[in-house]
Design a protein around this nucleic acid. Structure first.
Lengths: 269, 269
DNA sequence: CAGTGGTCTAGACCACCAA
DNA sequence: TGGTGGTCTAGACCACTGC
């Protein structure tokens, strides 16, 4: 199983990462459950188990990998903590999805001011309006963010989200052209749920993690027109890079949030 | 130990929360390790183990609470995940502290733009300037945030943080008067490390968790003067409520962040 | 070397869910 | 009723730290 002395059953689950004896002086001990975690991750990104589906039971996986239930349990625990898997007692363990009713718009942290934490969530964007969706060549900046070369084809989308009739979010987003071949304004318009749910079902791209950089800015002429505000209204600029498995960046998104009746909520631990 | 059938050793650790048989129809089953977690939490807030100190070993605690090592392990695991405890292999488990060199300014999410994630952290605020520190009566708003009554005595502090000579953060903060009796501008000025570290050592108040509401705003006259910017410079308004153990609010803080060379960094999972 | 946290196993039993 | 995740135990051994 690894270079360490196998505890009981000889080795098992061939093809398992072994401790590298090369270069680095650190032996880099890797516990069994981490290796199992890696194997499960592989099955996830290979599409063996699809979003929303149940993965095999802990006992099945234990048999498959030839380890004890406790070991696959710990692997699954960590994946569940990362929101890659979802445990449901009595039912099974499921591949997490952005289509899930409970955790829809998981990455949207804008909340109405009259919303005092606790309970599920409230404000699912009432109206969405796709302004633009076109193929362009990646600027140096977009290319860098998405791990492409400048000039590569990317999809550029601009849209406005409104809450109770009030334009509140203006978003520009860039997607790598290859994985999202066939995405059109119509597809976006017709889609009901979250955009990331569409990405899962239509393009097999699952957003797993994201990083945001937030600043305060003033809108330019076009932006202020689209949000129907004056050019002196300060806005939250939220720049997000979203990643799939293996930390591969798959989306760059620049949001402008109107925060006179909403706020960006964050919890610190 | 609880109302469930005790697995091995009869009951143990008297005084343990028992499954409430009253009112609510739900039996509210509480696993052993959760109860242990509660007991450890009690010892933490009672000051039996102080910030920076080591708590008893897992085996000691297991003996003390009359449970197996695995059970206290799971309890400690969760507390460590919440940043209340810090595990160090081979050395012991320690009460987390804001004075820790590694995790100083844990709650400060403002980063210099030329800082591409990864590695510890960089920008510890270069210069800090306490502008004001006075006793006032709590406004309705402050009282509500801190769980006090309007008119109760609170400490109000205003300060400016600068990075490489540039005023960047203007903070107003309010602290409940009672727990922070004796806090003065001098104490704040003389303190070298993070403010939350001072709160721990001088007042026995440990900040455990915080919530922030972020908006984009324009500064008023006084604010723009202190930050040495024009009144049309958009700023990040960061309103934080920090909590000690048991979700007791102990600080309301309003920060104005200049984000022309910095950004607020957030990671989404 | 002893002590601490970290991993792994094997087995028992419980809580929850669906058929 | 059987299957799934969830809890708990007991014991063995490993990795890291400091004396």
């Amino acid at each position: 199983m690894s270079s360490q002395t196998p505890p009981s059953a000889g080795d098992a689950a061939d093809g398992m990462t072994t401790t590298p004896a090369a270069s680095a002086p650190a032996p880099a001990f890797s516990p069994l459950y981490q290796q199992i975690k890696g194997l499960i991750l592989q099955s996830l990104q290979s599409g063996e188990w699809k979003p929303g589906e149940a993965i095999p039971s802990e006992l099945d996986l234990a048999a498959r990998y030839r380890v004890s239930q406790g070991t696959v349990r710990k692997a699954i625990d960590e994946l569940a903590a990362d929101n890659l898997l979802l445990r449901r007692q009595g039912k099974g363990t499921f591949v997490a999805t952005h289509a899930e009713q409970q955790v829809q718009y998981r990455f949207l942290r804008l909340m109405p001011d009259d919303f005092d934490a606790g309970e599920p969530r409230q404000a699912t964007p009432a109206e969405r309006h796709v302004i633009d969706c076109k193929r362009v060549r990646a600027s140096a900046e977009v290319a860098r963010a998405l791990g492409l070369r400048a000039g590569d084809g990317v999809l550029q989308v601009r849209r406005v989200l409104s809450f109770s009739g009030r334009p509140t979010i203006l978003e520009d987003l860039w997607l790598p052209g290859a994985p999202f071949k066939g995405l059109t304004a119509e597809r976006l318009r017709d889609n009901l749920g979250p955009m990331y749910a569409l990405f899962e079902t239509e393009f097999g791209v699952r957003m797993v993690r994201a990083e945001e950089k937030i600043r305060a800015v003033l809108p330019d002429a076009a932006q202020s027109a689209l949000l129907k505000i004056s050019r002196s209204t300060p806005l939250l600029s939220v720049e997000r890079i979203a990643y799939t498995y293996n930390d591969v960046p798959m989306e760059l998104r620049r949001g402008l949030y109107l925060t006179d009746m909403h706020h960006y909520r964050n919890v610190l631990n």
